[in-house]
Design a protein around this nucleic acid. Structure first.
Length: 410
RNA sequence: GGAGGAGUGCCCGAGUGGUCAAAGGGAGCAGACUGUAAAUCUGCCGGUGUAAGCCUACAUAGGUUCAAAUCCUUUCUCCUCCA
């Protein structure tokens, strides 16, 4: 266990958005060191989707840092809360999920979370374990401790309320259930994104009400997505999944706006603060081209999710395609089937649509007109072009800089 | 239960009888530029068609009209106020 209190505090606070309450955290860490008693650090994950992305890893990274300092990570699989759906940051009620789907999601979630976490030092529990057996009387008891006014203090509820958008009563139950999780495991610290702030605080209140020591709530900033505008989310498509291929991750990191680089360092790399500060200084005041920092960032992220070697490979791959503008060696294959061929011929437009490079015939034509399409590295300008299918075997069709298809005939 | 407001393209949002496939922004795609899939600039951005055009689309179903996202009615959904 890390014995240096100062260091512990620094690591604990690094990159956080908010700590409620910081003084208490300092005290708590001090006691923990003195008594050589690790703290229970809680993180709840609702398995509402099968995959996690870098946005989720922000908080996982923080948990990992606590693990590395010798504390105990308690990962709560919100299999029961997932049925309600966290209303945080939402403007509409979440769709309900089937328990089977939730279980399945939970499985892949775990696997992916352990790309970040140290599985040896993690306790995993499902909250159905204690939420399922609750009787109505228990629930009434819990709900009686909170008021509607208190619920409406929460920003997103308030916004919905004021903005004439519906709030299901059930949604009020979500924070209470999450709070009850904290009570059930008697947590010392709970981690979450900024959108979790309210939920984490309700946990504190409930613990106090039930005579437990209040947990410290640590919130992490939400990771901005690849578009540089909205938070990273699957539904917006601006995300990097942790199971994506290294090449893909590298490319996607390279596509973030330069303004996001430092934020990504802080939230995704676990590098010491001083190091990140110096990178920031190099870019902002010493005129260093951000591309280097960005490449390095991409490699670090891949290194965490895979390993160093694969990170190097991904970088090389990127250079081959985008600096030397060569064609990558792994290209998705597209197999032409008989019905697409008329009298041994197939039009370029049809080929683009069928291979998924274009969304519609109109889109295919547009792309050709804009000069985006190449066949075997030769630009195509004629939207009426028709191929003899024999000649298509092994042909490489390219759209723009980064979409390729290798043609095959069955 | 009563009174009133709202529902527009992937998202936000303008539009209140024709000039609307619908302003603007965001996202997306492409081109130029670049040591970046960054920034910036330019173009595209419902389908079909070489094109004229045709089809589909402004919650839903009908109606008025030469003509409707825009007017009327039905249904659905959401909200506000009153009780």
């Amino acid at each position: 266990m890390e014995k240096d209190l100062k260091k512990q505090i620094e690591v604990a606070c690094q990159g956080t958005e908010d700590i409620l309450v910081k003084d208490e955290l300092v005290k708590m860490l001090g006691i923990s060191i003195k008594e050589n008693k690790p703290l229970k650090v809680k993180l709840g994950l609702d398995p509402t989707a099968p995959d996690i992305h870098l946005g989720h890893t922000v908080v996982l990274n923080k948990l990992r840092q606590f693990q590395d300092m010798g504390h105990k990570a308690v990962l709560i699989i919100g299999d029961y809360t997932a049925r309600i759906g966290d209303p945080s940051g939402r403007s509409t009620l979440r769709p309900k999920l089937d328990p089977e789907v939730i279980d399945k999601n939970a499985e892949t979630y775990m696997k992916q979370a352990f790309k970040i976490l140290d599985s040896e030092k993690t306790e995993v529990v499902k909250n159905s374990e204690w939420l399922q057996p609750l009787q109505l009387a228990d629930i009434l008891n819990l709900t009686s401790r909170f008021t509607v006014a208190r619920m409406l203090e929460r920003d997103d509820f308030k916004k919905r309320f004021n903005g004439n958008i519906s709030i299901a009563i059930m949604e009020f139950l979500y924070p209470i259930m999450q709070a009850y999780d904290s009570v059930a495991i008697n947590s010392d610290i709970e981690l979450g994104g900024t959108d979790q702030r309210f939920n984490l605080l309700v946990g504190r209140e409930l613990q106090k009400d039930l005579g437990q020591r209040q947990q410290i709530a640590i919130t992490m900033p939400l990771l901005v997505g690849l578009d540089g505008v909205s938070k990273m989310s699957k539904s917006l498509g601006n995300y990097i999944g942790v199971t994506e291929k290294p090449d893909e991750i590298f490319g996607k990191v390279m596509s973030i706006p330069d303004s996001l680089i430092i934020g990504y360092y802080r939230l995704l790399t676990r590098l010491p603060k001083t190091e990140i500060d110096s990178i920031e200084k190099q870019i902002t005041t010493q005129g260093e081209n951000p591309v280097f920092a960005k490449r390095n960032l991409a490699k670090i992220i891949i290194g965490i999710l895979y390993d160093k070697q694969q990170a190097e490979d991904a970088e090389q791959h990127f250079d081959i395609i985008f600096k030397e503008k060569k064609i990558p060696d792994e290209i998705p294959e597209f197999c032409i089937s008989g019905e697409d061929i008329t009298e041994g011929r197939m039009s370029i437009v049809n080929l683009l649509v069928k291979s998924g490079l274009a969304e519609s015939n109109a889109d295919a034509k547009r792309q050709i007109i804009q000069g985006a399409i190449k066949a075997n590295d030769v630009k195509i300008t004629d939207i009426n072009l028709i191929f003899n299918t024999q000649g298509l075997k092994g042909m490489i069709i390219q759209k723009g800089k980064r979409f390729f298809r290798k043609i095959n005939i069955q």
